[in-house]
């Protein structure tokens, strides 16, 4: 093989590698910016069925095929309350593209207060109630707020401890890249 051919193939290989790894690096960047802990081994998100404020039972399976932000919160948690509006903005922006926001309230009582927040912030994403703490425990929640990213394949893709600006450009980019269609 001529030296020029080897050089040509080498340049091409590097170009391909850059093209392939670029989005992956960017993807990692956004995850890092959002402070997401990545799984060492992807596992299915624990299944659950919970009631919403209207008394309807909703399960994780109802969101099959969607990229989910599963958020655990409580009305007595100030940082939780502060991140609710940004979760609504994220939902408004990306719901049509397949991102679902699911907020699980772990309040034991006082569901009127959960409804009050729903109305106050015009929250349209599903809010589920876990008064018995079963789902909270199956997701090993030790502090609030805590969120999980669940991929369209049902696997856990990330763990987020603490409040975030879910409508920030980094967050929007992160969810865009988690969608099955990738960057759009």
């Amino acid at each position: 093989m001529k030296r020029s051919s080897i050089f040509y193939w080498l340049i091409s290989l590097i170009a391909v590698l850059i093209l392939v790894s670029g989005p992956a690096i960017a993807h990692q960047d956004f995850l890092e910016k959002m402070g997401v802990a990545l799984p060492k081994r992807e596992k299915f998100a624990p299944d659950f069925n919970l009631k919403n404020l209207d008394g309807d039972t909703i399960g994780l399976k109802d969101f099959k095929g969607k990229t989910i932000l599963l958020n655990f919160w409580a009305t007595w948690c100030q940082p939780c309350k502060e991140e609710l509006p940004s979760m609504q903005k994220l939902y408004t922006e990306l719901a049509a593209r397949g991102v679902e926001v699911v907020a699980v309230s772990i309040d034991r009582d006082n569901h009127g207060k959960v409804r009050k927040y729903k109305d106050q912030y015009n929250l349209t994403f599903p809010i589920l109630l876990d008064p018995g703490q079963e789902v909270r425990k199956s997701y090993f929640i030790m502090g609030l707020p805590t969120s999980y990213l669940i991929g369209a394949d049902g696997h856990l893709k990330g763990f987020i401890s603490g409040a975030r600006k879910w409508d920030s450009p980094a967050s929007i980019q992160m969810f865009s890249q988690l969608l099955p269609s990738g960057i759009s």
């Binding site: 990545l38 799984p39 090993f140 030790m142 502090g143 805590t146 763990f159 401890s161």
Partner: peptide, 15 residues
Amino acid sequence: SRRYKGFSAPKELGF
């Protein structure tokens, strides 16, 4: 503090 460094992701769920 957990409020400074956040909570550890659970190894039981693959983290």
